[in-house]
Nucleic acid binder design. Structure first.
Lengths: 246, 246
DNA sequence: CGTCACTTTGAAAGCTTTCAATAGGAGTGG
DNA sequence: CCACTCCTATTGAAAGCTTTCAAAGTGACG
């Protein structure tokens, strides 16, 4: 069962014990022994509306998950990076389509097996809740971006978010196309391109490859993004009076 | 512990047994005996970044939950209606501010107590996961709306969503202001107003009060909204060819 | 019945999109 | 190894939808 104390103890990535082989169970344990499958760029892993009977562990590559409107407009809900688990938040139908952006390696297990493994350990149950909460937080952050940020702010926010996920030095890799970025940010690919050009012209970023850019002025970029951006929560929340109304 | 079979068994609202007093536990059980508190319109229940140590049960009224950018732009993440539970998806900090749109009555319990009650029953654990998944689904739907729908589509989608939650006959109540709607839909209050006027002029809706409107032509409205809109999933997912690109 | 806040309406401005053309890279084949 | 082709990205110009700024209208409340 849940340990009622664990919920608030962990946040974000699972902290790893120091120094030796990790004795702590992780959500990946359920995938042990499952065969590794490969998808090449563009292939779909599952479609929106499919019966959601499986859960996936992404080992390599990047996935995009999206929804489509009847007339073809596409909204990418997110990109999935190695180490992430996909499909946990489905009930019985997939909420979106998942497609390989790059060549991808995955493992899959049935929902039943995954959950039975999770049930073995209060620690894993807590991690599962943490995972769901983190995804919820990311979704809310994206709603803020889509609802209230300008094109430039959206692009910069995206760059910084990618940097937070897998930045190396000051550089990030953007394996997805401009169209993918656009569909994720609620823009057109032309607008994304223009914003990137503009940022480069101002020296805030610098293209070091077609899909590789350096964030030359991280501070300025963070200012533009205008918000936490999934990075370490710098300062503790400002003190606020507890005004219990009424 | 989790029952590995329950996850996929329930979806959406908890189905109630027929005919007699409900013997099935619900997530509200944890609130039993807690005093009812009142907030008047405009008062805040908690702020973004507050320590998230409590969970709330909304008995009456409507809440808005929102985030604010440093320069004051506001994005409403959602409205909370009676019967809903708030705060479940927080880890240790609140992800948003919650404020009363109307006069509101709530009960609160500590996260610890809530979780210990949930832990008593596999059924409740399953309901908790269901709750989180449903919220995730709603968040994704909103991301689609914000990223890819036009102003008119957004407004109509909202009206239909409200209708789905608490429509009576063909009428719905919109207790929130136009500005609230705008901040929820990623628009300005003027645009929301214009869209409502336009819909009324075309006979699709009809104002029966300042904050009460009738959806005169639901079918046409659904067409405009262009998507499921949280209502009953009409048809099963369409068959899809597996076209492997590349 | 007056005041205040919210809503509606109008007109102009602005940001993003649309449409179109050019440029750039990657992969292929000679 | 270079030429060719195709696809993606960039750039330009005009159009469009939504926003902004402003003013008038409407309803709630004291």
């Amino acid at each position: 069962m849940y340990s009622q104390t664990t919920i608030s103890l962990t946040r974000g990535a699972v902290p790893s014990p120091i120094g030796r082989a990790d004795p702590r169970p992780t959500l990946k344990d359920g995938f042990g022994g499952q065969p590794v499958e490969s998808l090449s760029a563009g292939e779909a892993l599952f479609w929106e509306g499919d019966e959601a009977s499986q859960i996936f562990d992404l080992l390599e590559g990047v996935l995009r998950v999206y929804k489509i409107l009847p007339d073809g407009r596409r909204a990418i809900m997110g990109f999935v990076y190695p180490g992430e688990v996909l499909g946990v938040s489905f009930q019985h139908r997939s909420l979106f389509t998942a497609e390989a952006v790059t060549a991808v390696k995955i493992r899959r297990v049935s929902r039943g097996r995954f959950l039975s493994v999770v049930n073995e350990s209060p620690d894993l149950q807590s991690q599962l809740v943490t995972l769901l909460c983190d995804k919820m937080s990311a979704a809310h952050e994206q709603m803020l971006l889509l609802g209230r940020k300008s094109a430039e702010e959206r692009v910069v926010s995206f760059l910084i978010a990618v940097y937070g996920k897998c930045g190396e030095g000051a550089e990030i890799e953007l394996p997805m196309s401009r169209l993918d970025m656009a569909d994720y940010l609620g823009l057109t690919m032309e607008t994304v391109s223009r914003m990137m050009t503009s940022l480069a012209r101002r020296g805030l970023i610098h293209a070091t490859g077609r899909h590789r850019i350096a964030l030359s002025k991280l501070g300025a970029l963070r200012d533009i993004a205008g918000r936490d951006q999934g990075e370490a929560d710098a300062e503790p929340a400002p003190a606020r009076r507890a005004v219990w109304p009424n």
